[in-house]
């Protein structure tokens, strides 16, 4: 098993990587830093697991060379769990990427990062409800201070592939939407 860290540029993915592996990596606050991806090892339940920091991408329809790399890396590692890092103050944007990855059949765990920024902006997210709707683990985190990381690591094992139809149906889409 491998773990892929995915998410938009500037959501703090590299700080995640730094915290999870303790390795030396670059984290820079401008787009396009992590063009050469980083690899490291993290411990989950007494086991060493490979962690790959995938370059930031907005969607799985690549717009530039760095995004192409991200999509290729996802496809090359079919047996991975994807930790999808979202900017909690811009959940909708991040959910788009998360849904795309879920649709491809990968087990996903969602980190609602920059939780502090969202709080500053007076945005509150019901993480428990979001988890119930999506059927994948959802963990609020603040990478810069390290909050939520223990929980994140402990919940990686709960990530399982989810059928997108189930999510659509639970939101009253599909057939019932056609009726209404």
């Amino acid at each position: 098993m491998k773990i892929l860290l995915m998410g938009h540029p500037n959501v703090g993915k590299s700080v995640f990587f730094n915290r999870l592996t303790g390795a030396k990596v670059f984290e820079s606050n401008y787009p396009g830093t992590t063009v050469d991806f980083m690899k490291g090892w993290m411990r989950i339940g007494g086991e060493d697991v490979e962690l790959i920091d995938v370059p930031g991408t907005f969607s799985l329809e690549p717009k530039d060379k760095a995004e192409e790399v991200s999509v290729e890396m996802l496809e090359e590692n079919q047996d991975s769990v994807v930790v999808c890092v979202l900017d909690a103050s811009k959940v909708e944007r991040g959910l788009y990427l998360a849904l795309e990855i879920i649709e491809k059949g990968y087990p996903v765990i969602i980190a609602l990062n920059m939780w502090d920024v969202a709080e500053d902006k007076n945005i509150s997210i019901d993480a428990v409800k979001l988890e119930r709707i999506l059927g994948v683990p959802v963990v609020p985190t603040t990478a810069v201070s390290g909050e939520g990381f223990k929980e994140l690591v402990s919940r990686v094992k709960d990530a399982t592939p989810v059928k997108i139809e189930l999510i659509v149906r639970s939101m009253g889409g599909g057939e019932s939407a056609a009726v209404s």
């Binding site: 945005i123 509150s124 659509v168």
Partner: peptide, 23 residues
């Protein structure tokens, strides 16, 4: 079955209405 772009945004819209509140 992958969703179309519109379907995906539509779904996100519904999800966020139930989970996100803006103060």
């Amino acid at each position: 079955m992958p969703l179309s772009v519109d379907e995906r945004w539509d779904l996100i819209d519904k999800i966020s209405k139930q989970t996100v509140t803006f103060g």
